[in-house]
Nucleic acid binder design. Structure first.
Length: 554
RNA sequence: GCGCCUGUAGCUCAGUUGGAUAGAGCAACGGACUUCUAAUCCGUAGGUCGCAGGUUCGAAUCCUGCCAGGCGUACCA
């Protein structure tokens, strides 16, 4: 619809120039928007103001020249007007909106989909929590955003892969092994010292118990080094499978799980370090190996191999990001917690050093989640091991409510997640507000079926009965959906869809309270059924991008 | 100190990539269920868009400088 208006303006401008009404044929990009105020029409363009300096004419005069030359072969326009400093407002004939409904019904689950991604191979890596403990709420937000962004990109024609990077190597894993081993030892001996820097959570005791169930006291007869290494692997594997379960119950399924350890085992880390040393991108100083991140815009150089010979996290990240591009991804998106933002310059540096431009690398930084209960902060100390896990949250408030709430804010804003609020089944909690639309319409459809109305298809006579202002408004809102999805994909901002759905839901509920769908008039009823079933399709369609279910009954 | 994020109604937040009179929900007040699900709707009230400059036809939005809060600034992960 917007495109039609654009074409109309373009043709009118051209005709105006041909006839001499406009002195220049240098036309800017035409922008058409939907004004907030209904009194400003259905669409509006600022072209006259933008062209004023080029045409050397006052904006309102330009607007007159364009309007004079407007051609409307399909008869979609009711009227046009010049307003304010020179806006041209277009008022559409209400019948011109009706074909949108047909499109929604035909495209159904694909309404709003596009090919703006052109099949480009793109990777979204998210969660990637260390397998040293259970997922918490912060990971939940990352999971909800990452998964949804990936869904939206897929919907917009990208070839998307969802990946989880497993940090199954390095010091935190041996600390985990030591923690589990010590708790295991406690099961057999008194007076075991448990250091501060070990993991204190209850899950460590659970894992120790499990290790005993599997092995009896066998581990005590091994060398400590062997036992710790066994416990590390045992614990990490167990935790990882718990993480997988949690994510699955949260509706998140990864295409690929990428192991850090395998990057080392395959020699990729050593190779990249050697290559960069030859290129003098990595150099030795004070017994350590340093990456010249400063040459790539970071504030200082960073250590890759410590003087004790151990690699840093950064070392494997260099190899990991190079590996992503080696696998053919044209764009790489990392979803991180905002506390890692200082890490961006060095990873960008690594990417640039491996010969890729940094615009192919995007980081979505997710701000922190404050967990509340009835407005009071819930303590979340990882040290003491007292934190509310994602699993707890899902079982308490449900996956749908949790995911929706995580997506009700721009990820760059900190989020207060109130457990009591999330459980409420009222207007405080927008997820039910949106799902309720789907359930209500489903209910109407069932009632219609009881009345013997089953064949709900496009029918000129029935559709032309849709003339109420609320009906036209609803169709206009529905017509905007594809653009919302596109914006959401371009900016990687799922919350745009969340807000759109709340908006559409609100328009529907208002309509529902004012007008009956099932009336005594067959044609009107059929038209309205066609309308609300289109709404239902968009609600389902949008919720699925967010990873939220669309219930038939509530 | 430096870097990133945030600052919009009493509270929690949107704001169509620079448009016209800045919008929702909650909370407050007043209304609507014998009719398709009241997990809903309608109405009233609520604003110096942190502050000060600048850019232009036009700024919550872009630029500069301040102020406030959060996070980060390891040969940790």
């Amino acid at each position: 619809m917007k495109q039609k208006i654009k074409n109309m303006i373009y043709n009118a401008s051209k005709d105006a120039y041909d006839k001499g009404d406009l002195p220049s044929s240098d036309f800017p990009e035409i922008e058409v928007e939907e004004p907030n105020a209904g009194s400003h029409g259905d669409f509006s363009t600022n072209i006259s103001m933008v062209m004023a300096s080029i045409q050397k004419m006052p904006p309102r005069k330009i607007a007159e020249a364009i309007i004079k030359n407007i051609n409307d072969p399909d008869g979609i326009l009711d009227k046009t007007e010049i307003a304010g400093p020179g806006f041209i407002n277009f008022f559409l004939n209400k019948y011109s909106w009706h074909p949108v409904l047909r499109k929604i019904h035909e495209q159904d689950a694909l309404y709003g989909a596009s090919d703006i991604g052109k099949g480009k191979k793109i990777q979204v890596e998210f969660v990637s929590a260390n397998p040293t403990g259970p997922l918490h709420v912060g990971h939940g937000r990352g999971a909800a955003v990452g998964d949804s962004v990936a869904n939206i990109l897929l919907f917009c024609g990208y070839n998307v892969e969802k990946e989880y990077y497993i940090n199954d190597s390095g010091r935190q894993i041996s600390t985990l092994g030591r923690s589990v081993f010590l708790r295991y030892k406690e099961l057999f001996e008194a007076d075991v010292q448990f250091p501060e820097d070990c993991y204190h959570g209850d899950y460590v005791r659970d894992l120790a118990g499990k290790a005993r169930d599997d092995n009896g006291d066998k581990l005590l007869s091994m060398s400590e080094e062997e036992a710790i290494s066994y416990c590390a692997r045992f614990a990490a594997e167990n935790i990882l499978s718990e993480i997988k379960e949690d994510l699955e119950s949260f509706g998140v399924v990864f295409d690929n799980w990428h192991s850090e350890q395998k990057l080392y085992d395959s020699g990729k880390v050593d190779k990249i370090i050697n290559d960069f040393r030859k290129q003098n991108i990595i150099f030795e100083d004070d017994g350590a190996l340093w990456f010249r991140t400063k040459d790539f815009g970071d504030e200082k150089n960073r250590v890759v191999v410590r003087s004790n010979g151990l690699t840093t996290y950064f070392a494997s990240d260099i190899a990991y990001h190079q590996d992503k591009f080696d696998r053919g991804f044209e764009r790489v998106i990392d979803v991180w917690g905002a506390d890692h933002h200082g890490y961006i310059p060095r990873v960008s540096a690594a990417i640039e050093a491996s010969g890729h431009t940094r615009d192919k690398f995007n980081v979505i930084l997710i701000q922190l989640v404050n967990l509340l209960r009835d407005g009071e902060p819930v303590s979340m100390s990882t040290r003491s091991g007292e934190f509310v896990t994602l699993r707890d949250v899902i079982s308490e408030v449900g996956s749908d409510a949790a995911r929706f709430i995580f997506l009700t804010r721009h990820y760059e804003s900190a989020l207060d997640f109130d457990l009591e609020l999330a459980k409420k089944k009222t207007n405080d909690n927008p997820v039910y507000y949106v799902q309720y639309v789907h359930a209500r319409i489903s209910s109407i459809a069932r009632k219609a079926q009881e009345r013997g109305i089953s064949d709900i298809v496009w029918n000129d006579a029935a559709i032309s009965r849709l003339t109420e202002p609320e009906e036209i408004q609803l169709i206009k809102t529905m017509a905007r959906y594809p653009e919302i999805v596109r914006c959401s994909a371009e900016n990687m901002e799922p919350h745009r869809i969340t807000y759109y759905l709340m908006n559409l839901a609100s328009a529907f509920h208002a309509y529902y309270n004012k007008h009956r769908v099932l009336t005594d008039e067959a044609e009107l009823t059929l038209g309205r059924l066609y309308l609300v079933l289109a709404i239902k399709k968009i609600i389902r369609n949008g919720l699925s991008l967010l990873g939220v279910s669309a219930p038939e009954k509530m």
